[in-house]
Design a protein around this nucleic acid. Structure first.
Lengths: 216, 216
DNA sequence: TTTTGTGAATTGCTTCACAGCA
DNA sequence: TGCTGTGAAGCAATTCACAAAA
């Protein structure tokens, strides 16, 4: 299959899960993995796994499966995480500081290089990150983003400030926003937003969990 | 349309977004809202909004739209957030403590009623939550879950402990798990899992952002 | 054998377009 | 007129099933 112009969005999303699972397999010294193995570990069919991977190239070996190390490199190349990406964060509240302290980003190709907040009382405060940093005012956003070539930002400000800060981020050159505020952020074409709303996730668990023991 | 036995999963997911947006509209004193308005605020088509809502009943008023307050009540009933749900949390690291401190769950129908950790050094420590609480050992999970009728749990432990703790949660009666560990959790039928992996989100932003300015 | 890659068939979801109601 | 609810059409994603490769 020659790369089709239109790759299904769900297939791209699953690529990240394949990569994560492959890292797990490699940590357990697995050398090769079949589409069946990979599917079972993720709750997907083997056909789904094969089709998804085939959208991006021919990575498998008939009779053998996929070589773990090889596939990891390929997927990293496709996702762009073979190179390190600088990320900035706006909103150094409880959640923001927890994210700054999280050590798991680096080995997946991301590094938080600056933290900002709109509260004057927080400016200049030190935060304990992977490499500790000082909180900067939002007026510095543009300068830092361009100096460090940052295209991805994490937005962890309160809901009522979110749209304004997102606009500031976009004006500063950010082209992908990971939004933790529980509101929809409207952005122009060419800017991607991915939202994580904890209450939304809990709601979905509630319905699923209930639907199960009421009928299914 | 009589409620069809099979409601599309994406429609159920969007229900949460409709509810959130309606809360925003109500905060701005909007009394009625059309499918067009609701769609525009969320980046969806008006037809999509109407069809989604119609899966669950006839909530609209031709010529008028949907009454905001009425629809909020209906959606809460469908999602189950008209009653408060008790939630517990396992893993009182940086992220876990940030989640405990988050004030936004309550008005969406969720309350974190207990926090657990596997580290003996943390047991008994006080954590500053909406109502402050003391960290309990995982051996108390079953007792607390049944005493307080908890069916939903937040899992914010390190990756290598995640599956084991998830198993403990399920054994304690938890039927929905919000997983922040960057691994796939395998669960039996009847248990729902929703995962939030920050690195996965960042990866998706990276590809989207890149795909845009390379071809589209 | 085992396992991939892939057209074809199928299932599922979204959009269209319009009758009917306020 | 303005707007919903909904069959029908169209589009997208998944599963099937098998030829080809090791």
């Amino acid at each position: 299959m020659a790369k089709p112009e239109q790759i299904p969005t769900p297939a791209v999303r699953r690529l990240s899960l394949y990569l994560r699972q492959l890292d797990t397999f490699r940590a357990a010294d697995r050398r090769t993995v079949s589409s069946k193995d990979l599917g079972r570990a993720l709750g997907l069919s083997d056909a789904q796994v094969r089709k998804d991977l085939a959208y991006f190239g021919q990575f498998g070996h008939p009779g053998i499966g996929y070589r773990v190390g090889e596939l990891i490199l390929r997927l990293r190349g496709i996702l762009g995480t073979d190179k390190m990406s600088n990320v900035l964060l706006v909103g150094a509240g409880n959640l923001g500081r927890a994210l700054l302290a999280f050590r798991g980003f680096r080995k997946r190709g991301f590094q938080i290089v600056a933290a900002f907040d709109g509260d004057p009382g927080k400016i200049g405060t030190d935060v304990a990150g992977v490499e500790p940093m000082r909180i900067l005012p939002i007026s510095e956003l543009s300068r830092v983003a361009s100096e460090r070539a940052v295209r991805i930002g994490i937005l962890s400000v309160p809901a009522q400030a979110a749209q304004q800060v997102a606009d500031d981020m976009i004006a500063a050159g950010i082209r992908g926003i990971l939004n933790f505020a529980p509101v929809t952020i409207l952005v122009p074409d060419g800017v991607a937003v991915s939202s994580v709303d904890l209450a939304v996730h809990l709601e979905q668990l509630l319905v699923q969990q209930r639907d199960y023991h009421t009928d299914a």
